[in-house]
Amino acid sequence: MKFIKFLLLGIVFGIVMTKSEAVSWYRIQEMFRFQAFHMYGIIGTAVTLGVAGVALIKRFRMRDYHGNPIMFNPKEKSVARYLIGGSIFGLGWALSGACPGPMVVNIGYGYWAMAIVFFFAIVGTYLYGLIKNKLPH
């Protein structure tokens, strides 16, 4: 029962993703073809809210669910690293028509083919975990 608020938040997230059409394969393809602003508006809103959220967390020194302080560690500034990683992520997103959030929402919406995409996202994450120490960071 302690996690019911997280379950409810996930349900609300799924509803918002569905109603905003952010889980629509058509909308995602439309974005990658530069045919519409719809997804760029959603992504821009998410980035803006994320920046504001991080600023509030830092300003008020907020704590996590267990009472630990939320810490933000500085990231290594490497243009090549982010270009390569972003390109791999974007290629997977364009080919599958979904990023991680919409994958799960689409499965819940009844698009069972997304379970294949989700399975391979899990496999890819696992494989990254296996070779992470061998990669330049």
Rank of each mutant, 00 (worst) to 15 (best):
H38C: 02
I15R: 00
Y65K: 10
T45M: 15
P69V: 01
G90V: 03
F118T: 06
A46M: 12
Y40D: 13
V117R: 02
C99Y: 09
M31S: 14
I88M: 09
Q35F: 06
L9P: 12
G85P: 13
A46G: 07
A46W: 11
L130F: 08
Y65Q: 11
F119P: 00
I84S: 02
T48S: 15
I84Q: 01
R63Y: 07
K58S: 08
V123W: 01
R59W: 14
M62D: 04
I70W: 14
I131E: 03
A46T: 14
K19M: 11
R61Q: 15
L91K: 12
G41P: 00
K77Q: 08
G110P: 14
I4E: 06
F3G: 00
N133H: 14
I11V: 15
I84G: 02
G41N: 12
G92Y: 00
R61V: 02
R61K: 15
P102R: 05
I15C: 09
M114Y: 15
V16I: 15
V104L: 11
Y40I: 12
Y26A: 08
R27G: 01
G97N: 06
F34P: 04
N73W: 09
K5I: 10
I43S: 10
G53R: 04
I57F: 10
G67S: 05
G44W: 14
A55Q: 03
L7G: 11
L49C: 13
K132N: 04
V79E: 05
F60D: 09
W25M: 11
Y109W: 05
L49H: 03
V51H: 07
G50N: 10
Y109N: 01
G14C: 09
G85K: 03
P136I: 06
F37H: 12
M62T: 07
G67H: 08
F13A: 01
A36E: 12
L135Y: 09
P100Y: 02
G92F: 00
S24W: 05
V105S: 00
T48C: 14
V105K: 02
G44R: 11
W25H: 13
G67V: 09
W93T: 09
V104I: 14
H38K: 13
V54C: 04
L135I: 05
F37I: 15
G101W: 03
T45R: 11
F119D: 01
I4K: 08
L8A: 14
A115E: 00
Y40S: 14
V12R: 02
G14K: 02
A98G: 13
A121Q: 04
S20I: 12
